[in-house]
């Protein structure tokens, strides 16, 4: 019963979350597609914004990822980061978008707010080469350390640039 009660209060808070956000961060763009609410923020206010979101009850960071809009028709900014948030109390979801550009794309890290951001941001660094300022341990997550490129960028070919052949061959005599 107590659970249900607290759920209600959190729910009503989350319902007007967008309005309170818009009041606090003027110029916030928001849109809805298939029932999914998305807001676009600037890199400058990111940390403050996410701290505020966490206070609003969005306590779980589901995913951090990125889209490289290099070949996307009509796109003006190159990298669009995607943060998927959930409020486990109410089940509300929110998608936060943040755009950055070449060269030296960088955004503030939110791994201090959500632990799950730690590895997800490392993966984005590995795959897209976006620096997360303030990240405690920004190393490659998936590719080997000596790898130089960022493979999910659109200017990197699917078959790679020959890295997968750079190994010595063992024949029977080596055994």
């Amino acid at each position: 019963m107590a659970e249900a009660h607290s759920k209600d209060t959190v729910d009503s808070r989350a319902d007007d979350a967008i309005e309170s956000l818009a009041a606090r961060f003027p110029g916030l763009e928001s849109s809805t597609y298939r029932g999914q609410v998305r807001v676009v923020i600037g890199a400058g206010v990111a940390l403050e914004f996410f701290t505020h979101l966490k206070q609003l009850g969005f306590n779980q960071l589901i995913d951090v990822t990125c889209v490289d809009y290099l070949e996307y028709r009509g796109a003006t900014r190159r990298y669009g980061l995607v943060y998927l948030l959930t409020a486990t109390g109410t089940g509300r979801r929110l998608t936060v978008r943040l755009f950055v550009d070449d060269p030296e794309p960088a955004v503030p890290s939110i791994s201090g707010l959500w632990r799950s951001a730690n590895w997800l941001e490392r993966e984005v660094w590995d795959m897209f080469g976006i620096r997360f300022i303030g990240h405690p341990d920004l190393r490659r997550l998936l590719m080997p350390e000596e790898f130089l490129a960022h493979p999910l960028r659109k200017d990197y070919p699917l078959q790679g640039r020959g890295e997968r052949h750079n190994f010595p061959v063992l024949t029977r005599e080596d055994g």
Partner: peptide, 9 residues
């Protein structure tokens, strides 16, 4: 394309 100095192999 691989940083040879850092690849032990």
């Amino acid at each position: 394309q691989v940083d040879a100095a850092r690849n032990p192999v």
